[in-house]
Write a protein that binds this DNA or RNA. Structure first.
Lengths: 296, 296
DNA sequence: CAAAGTTATTAATTTTTTTAATAGCAAGGG
DNA sequence: CCCTTGCTATTAAAAAAATTAATAACTTTG
């Protein structure tokens, strides 16, 4: 069985037309015809039901089953090629969601050696995209921010921190003296949110829904300091995970008192048995050591 | 890329010897040599480090990465062959753990049409083995008995019932009048357990451990009625999930009062997007309908 | 019933794979 | 040291497999 035959077959399952497949791959029509016959002989079952009827090639039951496996094989094949293609770059390619980049990565980076930092490349991705890229072999590992535990069979997810979302108000805001605030007290406030952070939005909506509110969102910025500035001018209030990396003299972070509140969970994810060069492995272990030390 | 080349390569990763691989596959040594060269050319990287040195062929980093993918591809290939090989039998092959066979399957079978029952074949398997066989394409679906939620990415697990384990005593046993019993009261009892049911054993040990006991197990039988008989003769007490399919006039099932007690969870598992013949699909849907009706 | 669109078959050609023979290399034993 | 042993690579020839162009055969459609 050859990979090209599988490619023809998979194209056929899309196309339902031998001739078109042959054109797609710049080969003659009998090539495709014979390729499919070869496959059928090898698996011992008819895969496609041909009809000189215009346009209609349908799959047998075996053909449908086989299509799934053919796809899986091709994916694995492509994965192999991209992964091996990436080997020469001796760096470790890391996914980094925006929130982590802001709130955690400075601290983690501080714990890494220069040698490790030099060979570390990061790509900005959300949690969903990160898993996708890992699956495609386009990332070696990724940080993740999420609200609900992530379960991915083939990947190891290490959760290394968790912290609540807080309300940000100006120091001279009426709420600034409060030790805690419940979300439903904020029905009339204007919110300034973090743009591009799917997680902040998700957490915000979760709280809004639980409290049956539809809070007004004044503005979204992808730059946390822009938000703190606007908050300090009392243009609105913020909703953000507190972090020692995000500070402003004129604003105050106030915890929520809601009994059920979303928590930002922060994790590190990688293939269960990653094969790394010794250089990559060194960096990898440094990162693992860094996240195993509690965050401030 | 051909499957046979991958087979040679994988054998080589075991063997570290081109000549032995060639003998294994009854081909000449240059065949293997050239196959590996072809692979290396196709993936664009050296895979094996040869040495005319006796016995030492080692893998490059790329070679190790590629070995993983080669294995995955071969597994998928074999899976395709076995699955397609099973298609002709028009029946649905179902895994059935012993406990389910005794406690649930009679009721479920009663809800199926004759047509469905005729084409249903069952294989006795534990939960672990069931998932293994599903992954190998050797089962279409399986019932599962388990204590802790099962998480399997590629499979759909429907939990359709859950019930506690109970103590079985003879009607004239001193404990027979009790509405409930706590497990730690049973330290001095002789137990008669269900043999071959990994789940019963696991639940029993869980309770024993939680109560810091090492209860005496008098006997294990794989036949539930043998247990009930012995219990009725006051030879010992039983530990079993109650079921209307397992009854005996001279014994009584008594619930445990322990706050934390294991529950037998009963589920049905199948590939997320199963491809079934229309006949199989009919049976499949009947089973789904049957388990969606609450059990007695 | 002819035209258009499809897949299968055939025989010739081309490409790829396999082989037998052999070269070449390194280690180990006398 | 040299010969033997055990290995892989390289050849050139042979065998096998894949591809093609040409064409047959079939079905629907106008």
């Amino acid at each position: 069985m050859r990979i090209t035959d599988l490619q023809y077959y998979l194209a056929l399952t899309d196309n339902h037309n031998f001739s078109q497949v042959s054109q797609q791959f710049h080969v003659s029509q009998p090539t495709v015809s014979l390729a499919i016959q070869r496959l059928e002989k090898e698996v011992g079952a008819q895969l496609a039901i041909r009809s000189s009827h215009h346009n209609i090639v349908s799959l047998t039951h075996a053909g449908q089953v086989f299509a799934q496996h053919a796809q899986a094989i091709l994916e694995q094949y492509n994965l192999a090629l991209t992964e091996i293609g990436r080997i020469d770059e001796q760096s470790l390619l890391l996914g980094l969601p925006p929130i982590i980049q802001i709130s955690y990565f400075p601290e983690i980076a501080g714990r890494l050696s220069n040698q490790a930092l030099e060979h570390l490349k990061t790509v900005e991705v959300g949690a969903h995209k990160a898993i996708q890229l890992l699956q495609d072999g386009k990332l070696d590992a990724s940080f993740l921010g999420y609200l609900e535990a992530i379960n991915q069979n083939d990947f190891q997810v290490l959760q290394f921190d968790q912290r609540p979302f807080e309300i940000v108000v100006a120091n001279d805001h009426p709420l600034a003296t409060r030790p805690t605030i419940s979300f439903k007290e904020l029905a009339d406030q204007n919110f300034i949110l973090l743009k591009g952070s799917f997680i902040h939005k998700q957490a915000f909506e979760q709280l809004a829904q639980a409290n049956h509110l539809q809070p007004n969102i004044l503005f979204s910025s992808s730059e946390p300091y822009a938000i703190l500035n606007l908050v300090s001018q009392n243009r609105g209030i913020g909703f953000m995970v507190s972090s020692k990396n995000i500070q402003h003299p004129d604003v105050k972070f106030i915890p929520l008192s809601d009994p059920e509140q979303p928590q930002l969970k922060v994790g590190f994810v990688y293939r269960k048995s990653p094969i790394l060069t010794t250089e990559q492995n060194t960096i990898f272990n440094e990162i693992l050591a860094a996240i195993h030390t509690p965050m401030l």
